[in-house]
Amino acid sequence: MRPALILIPLLALPLVLNDFWLTQVATRSLILGIMALSLSFLATYLGVVSFAQATMAGIAGYTIAYFGPNSVGIGVQLPFWISIPLALMLAVVSGGLIGLIARRSRGIYAIMITLAIGVAFFYFTRQNYTLFNGWTGFSGVRAPEIGGLSLRDPLALYLLSLGTAVLALALVSGFVRSPLGLTIQAVRDAPGRVLALGISVTTPIVAAFAFSGLLAGAGGILNVWYQERISSFSVGLGPIIDILIVAVIGGLRHPAGAFVGAVVFVLLDTFAVDLIDRERFNTLIGVVLLLIVIVAPGGLQQLASDWVARLRRPEVKEKSTV
């Protein structure tokens, strides 16, 4: 009942939005939201903030670029029904490997390790020309035509992104109810005790990272179709921080908040040019992140629910002013 209330307006959105709004704001928010969902999933259910999500998304995106039509003449053309599953699979594998590397680390240690992995991958894509075409990367990447319908069409890409986002959220909520999902949450709460139940701790951690790789990979594929190019800058510190900011704005403990964060981020990005010098966008983003961390570490959702709670119970406010 409730999902329908949100889904119907979203399905009707193309009727009211022009192509600019649909593509630059709606579709972009959905894609960014899917990538950030991969982070907030890890943060919520495994309790690990990973800086390597842009890497997993990038591996999927590079796979699509390398095995699909591009204008730099590198790679091998494969039909989309091979390259898409391959891209998702490589993203899952990369997620699992990153989980394996970071499996013994939590908190700030995990942040340091995943950030090192993400930045090392960025430098690797810049150095390597045979697979990644160095820092110029791939351009002219085209979304495939499926049954005569081109996914480059704004409406088609929007609906595909919306469908993927809904599927991703459904997958997350199903996954966390599965035995493996429960074990992942148990590892978050008390890893030593999980072992004492007779369950290995490595499996759930690797599985959580691999699952986040699936989400990030799906976002990465959509993103490379949307941007029509991918380069080292797509996996550099910029996107790493963007994904983090989106997840933090949405609240790291609320997976669906990633989409709220994405809309806020994209609106800021799109209209910042009217507020401040376009060149200083990074300063603006930095200030926004800093303010969120200082004022509302739980993210916008937390802020909103606090306000709602305060409005409903004014006496709480009175108490706090005493």
Binding site: D189, A190, R193
Partner: peptide, 8 residues
């Protein structure tokens, strides 16, 4: 001292 899974 019971370490249980608080979120479960």
């Amino acid at each position: 001292h019971a370490h249980l899974f608080n979120g479960l």
